[in-house]
Amino acid sequence: MAPRAHLALRRPEWSRGEHPVVNVPFIEISSVRKSFPARGGGAVSVLSGIDLAIAENEFVSLVGRSGCGKTTLLNIIAGLEAASGGSVAIAGRPVTGPGQGQGVVFQQHALFPWLAAVDNVGFGFRNAGLSKRQRRARSMELLRLVGLQAAATKYPRELSGGMQQRVSIARALALDPQILLMDEPFGALDELTRIELQQELLRIWQARRKTVVFVTHSINEALILSDRIVLLAANPGRIKRIFEVGMERPRSRTAPSFNALYEDIWNELSS
């Protein structure tokens, strides 16, 4: 008990912040609600009154227990699901559907099994008005970015889980989206592959300057990656607290500040 209190005392200024000041709201989520009709009448409220502003090039993680609506919120930002109320705007334009600058990386098994890796990436270009050759060249370029040019002609089932998710990232980047929405993309990977892909993602994020919204179950992962961590609570899904992670990257998983913030988030999550 004692060392934890000690660390809590030394908690830096930024991690105590309530809602941080965001200068340029790039993604603006205001009073978003989502409910489904329940069995036998009534409605189940999955999300209620979500307000969140995300700045350009910011890396934000959504963390919470199963059923807190984090994937639903991501899908609403992606334009894949409609909110029951409220609105989401990207750069001032309300989101009405997919293809407004959002690229999505899903959990595992979202690659098209009948397309080779390079064609999966090329799927993203299908409406971009490119010739077949241009499409292939661009796809190869993206595969190179994720280090998979050698596996271009392999089918998804011939790739390891980590490689599949690299292809997923390359595919999501195809239309050069301003926003990358990621739904537990590394959740099914083993620890070592997961760490590798986290580093890879940070490298891509820094090289290409994207705004990232990242859904995860792992506090650790959120701490390694994000600028801010949005903690969601369930029944109904709502924002419980927002944590600002002020540490320099690359971050150390053993730094006292890292552990202190971990402790904080865990306490908030389990309270």
């Binding site: 992606a78 997919p98 293809g99 999505v104 899903f106 959990q107 979202a110 098209f112 799927f123 409406n127």
Partner: peptide
């Protein structure tokens, strides 16, 4: 069809 695949395609506006 696996809804995940449909979602992935829809995310590209297909």
């Amino acid at each position: 069809v696996d809804p995940m695949l449909i979602r992935a395609a829809r995310s590209f506006g297909v």
